[in-house]
Structure formats: structure tokens, C-alpha cells
């Protein structure tokens, strides 16, 4: 089984971190994994995306061109990548920021107001974690616990409060 995941949004939305957490969790689960960011001139607010491949077999091409899972955190990302999603793939969007309808009807589409949900947790920047929670719920990529395990490993012990709020955001998305 191979999951080809593309996470896309504005720089600063935590696109790269969400992908990194997923990749880290997959590594802890002994899966084959690759994480590839888009990169460009350093600019806050520019577009960013990352390709994450999680597989039971060695990953050959690390570039995701036809995602099985697309996480679009802003409208330009949905515009750009919606067509590339595989048939029967899954698309996740932040309904707080994206008002447009999905064009695809051969994919499973999940629009949740993740920014708003994160704001309700007093953590407006954790829209990425809310969406990631939803991805874990709706796909067979990884078990929820492995994401939490990865979180524990990536967030330093000195920042326990951050761990808690990230965990809460993931749970909120998972239960949405």
C-alpha cells in the first residue's frame, strides 16, 4: 500500500510541519517514507507545499504528481492540485478559507472549517493539525496514536504546553 500525500497552503500555515509529523510517524511505524518540500526564495506568506509518500515498499520517486490524499489549506492550492488527485483519492480542505465547491465528484471530499476550529481552541495557527487529524480519521495512512507518538518525539519536553495544544487540535480534527 502506498499513500501519496500532498499538503499545500500559504507559508506560515504549518504545511511543512504537518507533512514532517506525518513522515516522522510513518518512520516510527517502520514504513518507507519520503518528505519533499517545495522550496523557493525565502518569503513569509508565499505558497508552500510538501510531498509525503508512505509505503510498505521502498519509495522510488519522492515527488507526488498524482496525490491519493490532497490537503489544500487555501484556495490557490485547491485550484492548482484538485485535478491531479487520483480517482477515488481524498481531498481535505479548510472550509474557513475556501468557499468554492469541489469540481471533482470521483474523489471523497472533506471540507472542515479547520481554522475556525483551531481558533476555538485558542490556537489559530493549528489549522494544520486539525486537518491532519481529519486525514488520519478518514484514511488508512497511519493510526492516530502513531501521530501522537511522533508529536511527543518532535516537540521538546520543555514545550509541554505546545504538545498538549497540538494534541488537542489533532483530536478535534479526528472527531470532526
Amino acid at each position: 500500500m502506498t499513500h501519496e500525500i500532498l499538503i499545500s497552503g500559504f507559508g506560515g500555515q504549518g504545511v511543512l510541519f504537518a507533512g514532517k509529523l506525518l513522515a516522522y510517524a510513518a518512520m516510527l511505524e517502520e514504513k518507507y517514507v519520503s518528505w519533499l518540500p517545495s522550496y523557493g526564495p525565502e518569503m513569509r506568506g508565499g505558497t508552500a507545499n510538501c510531498s509525503v509518500i508512505i509505503s510498505d515498499e521502498p519509495v522510488s520517486c519522492p515527488l507526488v504528481t498524482n496525490p491519493t490524499v490532497l490537503v489544500a489549506m487555501n484556495a490557490p492550492s485547491l485550484d492548482k492540485f484538485e485535478d491531479s488527485v487520483t480517482k477515488d483519492g481524498k481531498i481535505f480542505t479548510d472550509a474557513s478559507l475556501i468557499s468554492q465547491e469541489f469540481k471533482r465528484n470521483d474523489t471523497s471530499n472533506f471540507a472542515i472549517p479547520s481554522t475556525k476550529m483551531a481558533e476555538e481552541l485558542q490556537a489559530s495557527k493549528l489549522s494544520n493539525m486539525v486537518l491532519l487529524g481529519k486525514v488520519v480519521k478518514e484514511t488508512s495512512v497511519l493510526p492516530f496514536e502513531s501521530i501522537i507518538n511522533a508529536l511527543k518525539k518532535t516537540v521538546p519536553a520543555s514545550k509541554q504546553a505546545m504538545l498538549e495544544i497540538n494534541k488537542k487540535a489533532l483530536e478535534t480534527g479526528f472527531n470532526a
Binding site: 514532517k20 513522515a23 518512520m27 517514507v33 519520503s34 518528505w35 519533499l36 518540500p37 522550496y39 519509495v59 519522492p62 515527488l63
Partner: peptide, 10 residues
Amino acid sequence: DGMLGQMMEP
């Protein structure tokens, strides 16, 4: 190349 330098793998 830029891709190999920027990508993460275990």
C-alpha cells in the same frame, strides 16, 4: 541536486 538536498528520509 536541490531535491536530494531538501528532501527528508529516514
